[in-house]
Design a protein around this nucleic acid. Structure first.
Lengths: 340, 340
DNA sequence: CGAAGCATTGCAAGCGCTTGCATCGATGAT
DNA sequence: ATCATCGATGCAAGCGCTTGCAATGCTTCG
C-alpha cells in the first residue's frame, strides 16, 4: 500500500538509486534532478521504510534509553531533557524501564535493544561488569548519566562536593548533631549516588565530632529509600533516638518532604526545632520551603543527549565526565539550632 | 560481525528457513530439530536482526507512545503503566514527546513513527481531525487514554462524574461560594479534560447559586495551567476578589498545592478559612493532607497497554471506552465553612 | 504391496533501500 | 577536432529474514 522508492523514481523519471541519494541529500545529484525528486516524493507523500533503510545501512536512527524508573521526578526530568535534543536531531527514543531487579535481569538477558539502536544511554544506573560488557558489546556508543563507566561517555554532578557543601552549611549554622537520610539497605539497584552523598555526610559529621571530642552517632545514618514514605519513617526513627539530631540532611527532596511531615506531626517546628536540608530542588521544594542542593536535571539530560549525538557523528569518547554545577538553595527549612 | 541466521543454520545442520521457524516457535518443525536449533542459537549468542525481520514481515514489535509531556506526574505514571505491560509482552516502546504546539506540529508533519510501529498510543491529547486521520492512516491500531476518538480504542475515567462528586462533597459540607482552578486560556494543546471538569464545576456551582437566588460569580473560574505556580497565582487572584470563595476546587493536585501555599502565605488556615479540594491523588497529596479525587493513573496506562495488545493480536476495536473508577479521598483540606 | 497422506525440511523469491562500480555525456585542455 | 576528466546517473548486488511451494521420506490404509 505505501509508496516505495520505485514509485517516486518512476514519477520523477529517474532511477531508485538517484531518488535514494536525492532524498538523503548526499552529493552527486544535480540540483534540477533533486528538486524534481523532492517534488515527486512530496506529491506521493512518500516516507522511507526505516526497516529497509536500516537493513541496508546498519543504522537505525534510534537510541535506547535505559532507566530504572520513569515515574520518579528525577528520571522523568532526565528523560525529558534527553528526548528534547534527540528529537531535534531527528532521532527516535526507545525507552527501556527496568523497574526492579528481576526486570533488570530480564533486560540484560534479552538485551532487547540489540541491533535496534545506534547508541545507548544509561540513566543513573551503575552497571556491573557483565552488564557493561554486554552494552559495550553492542558496538555502539554508550553514554551514562550519574555514573562513570569505562568505555562510556558520561555526564554528572559532583555529588560528593555538593553534599559536602550542604553539610558545611549546616555546620556553619551551628549544628553539631546532624543526621542523614539516604538509601535503605540493601541499596535497590546498586545505586552509587546515595553512597557518595553518605560519604560526604560522614566526612563532615565525623570531623565535627572529632572537634567536639566525641563519638559520632551511628544511628544518625538512616535509609529512606528515596521516597516520601521512607523519609517519614527514617525521621520517626531519628526522633526516637536518645540523642536527637538538630539537623537532618536528606539525600533527596522527596525524603526530606517525608521528614518534614513527620516533624510536623510530632509537633516540632522547622527550622526552629530541627533544620532539614534536601537534595535535588524538586518542583515542590519551593512550595514546601525546603532548603536544598539544586542540580540541573533537565540540563544533565540535554547534555547527555548532545554527547550522544557527537559520538554518533564520529566524535571520540571524552576522557573525563562532564560535570555540571550544583548550588545550594536556601529557603526556610534551615536555621541555627535553637539556643535551647 | 554479529551472527546471522545462516550461521545458526550451518551449526545446527539445517536450512535457514528451519532456523527461522524453530526460533519463532511456529509449528512445522520437529521437536528434535527445534532443540538442536535452539542449542546452536544459544551457543552462538544469536540475536535476530529486527530490521531484517521487520522488512520481511512488516511488523516491528514496537509501539509508539505519544505524550504531551513526560515530566509531569500524571504522564510519567501513565507511561510507567503502559511500559510495564508492553515490556512483559516483549514489545518495545518508542517515546514521542510533543512538548508544545510547534513540537506537536513537527511531529504530525514528519510523523516519525510512520512504518516504525505496530500501533500508536496517544496519552490525554485530543486530536484534531487531520491529526486523527494521519494516525489512523498509519493503518495500525490506535488507542487513546483520556480522550475518545472515532476509530480508536480508549480508556479513561468519568471526569465529569468525578468532578461532580467532588463538588457535591463541598456543597454537602455547607459551602456555597466555591471557586475553580482549571486550565488557563487558551488551553495549551487543546486538552479537553480541564473543560470537562470545569463543566461539572459550573453545573453544581450554578445550581447552588440558583437555590440561593443569586448570580454565580464568574471570576470564580480561574486558570492555573496545571502547575503549582499557576495554582498559586490563581489563588491570589481569588483572594483579591470582593466576594471570596469559602472553598476551592482545583482540577489538579499540583494547582491545589499552589493554592495551599498562597493561602498559607496569606495567613489563612486550611480548612478553617478555606477548603481546598484537588484532583489526581498525586504522590504528595498525602503529605500535604490534601483532599482529592483519586484516579488510578498507572492502571489507566496498564489497561491501555492491554487494549493495545488485544488489538495487535487481532481483537476488534471496542465500541465504548473502558472507564475506570475514581474515588474521593478525604484528608485534612476540606471542612465545613467557618460559622463566621 | 502400492498409493495416498502427512509431517519435515529446503528452495528461492521477495521485503525496500543503499552503494560500489560502470556508463554516459559534456566540458575543457591540447 | 580529439582525448582525458569529471559530474550525474543507472545497474545490480547485497542487507538478513520470512514464507509459499515443492520435495522428501515416512506412516498408514486399502
Amino acid at each position: 500500500m505505501p509508496e516505495k522508492l520505485d514509485d517516486v523514481a518512476r514519477l520523477a523519471g529517474v532511477s531508485a538509486a538517484t531518488v535514494s541519494r536525492a532524498l538523503r541529500g548526499v552529493p552527486g545529484v544535480a540540483d534540477r534532478t533533486r528538486t524534481r525528486v523532492l517534488a515527486a516524493a512530496a506529491e506521493l507523500g512518500y516516507a522511507i521504510s526505516p526497516a529497509a533503510s536500516s537493513l541496508a545501512t546498519g543504522r537505525t536512527g534510534t537510541v535506547g534509553v535505559i532507566v530504572p524508573y520513569v515515574d520518579r521526578w528525577y528520571f522523568s526530568r532526565l528523560i525529558s531533557g534527553v528526548e528534547r535534543v534527540l528529537r531535534d536531531a531527528g532521532i527516535s527514543l526507545l525507552l527501556y524501564n527496568l523497574g526492579d531487579a528481576p526486570g533488570r535481569a530480564r533486560f540484560f538477558a534479552g538485551l532487547p535493544l540489540r541491533r535496534r539502536v545506534d547508541a545507548a544511554l544509561v540513566l543513573s544506573l551503575p552497571l556491573n561488569e557483565i552488564e557493561r560488557e554486554l552494552l559495550l558489546g553492542l558496538d555502539t556508543p554508550l553514554v551514562t548519566i550519574g555514573t562513570e563507566e569505562p568505555g562510556a561517555d558520561s555526564v554528572g554532578i559532583d555529588d560528593h562536593g555538593a553534599a559536602v557543601t550542604a553539610m558545611r552549611h549546616l555546620v556553619q549554622l551551628g549544628h553539631r548533631e546532624i543526621a542523614f537520610i539516604g538509601e535503605s539497605d540493601p541499596i535497590p539497584l546498586g545505586f552509587t549516588t546515595p553512597l557518595r552523598r553518605l560519604a560526604a555526610y560522614r566526612e563532615v559529621y565525623h570531623a565535627v565530632c572529632r572537634e567536639d571530642g566525641r563519638e559520632p552517632e551511628a544511628a544518625f545514618e538512616t535509609g529512606g529509600g528515596f521516597t516520601v514514605a521512607g523519609g517519614e519513617r527514617a525521621m520517626s526513627g531519628l526522633l526516637g533516638l536518645p540523642r536527637r539530631p538538630t539537623a537532618v540532611f536528606a539525600a533527596s527532596d522527596e525524603m526530606a518532604f517525608g521528614a518534614l511531615r513527620t516533624l510536623r506531626r510530632a509537633g516540632l517546628r522547622v527550622p526552629e526545632d530541627v533544620s532539614v536540608l534536601g537534595f535535588d530542588d524538586h518542583d515542590l521544594a519551593d512550595l514546601l520551603e525546603l532548603s536544598t542542593v539544586a542540580q540541573p536535571v533537565a540540563e544533565l539530560g540535554e547534555r547527555a543527549g548532545r554527547l550522544l549525538l557527537a559520538r554518533l557523528s564520529g566524535g571520540k569518547i571524552a576522557t573525563s565526565p562532564a560535570i555540571l554545577g550544583t548550588r545550594l538553595v536556601l529557603r526556610g527549612s534551615t536555621a541555627p539550632p535553637s539556643a535551647r
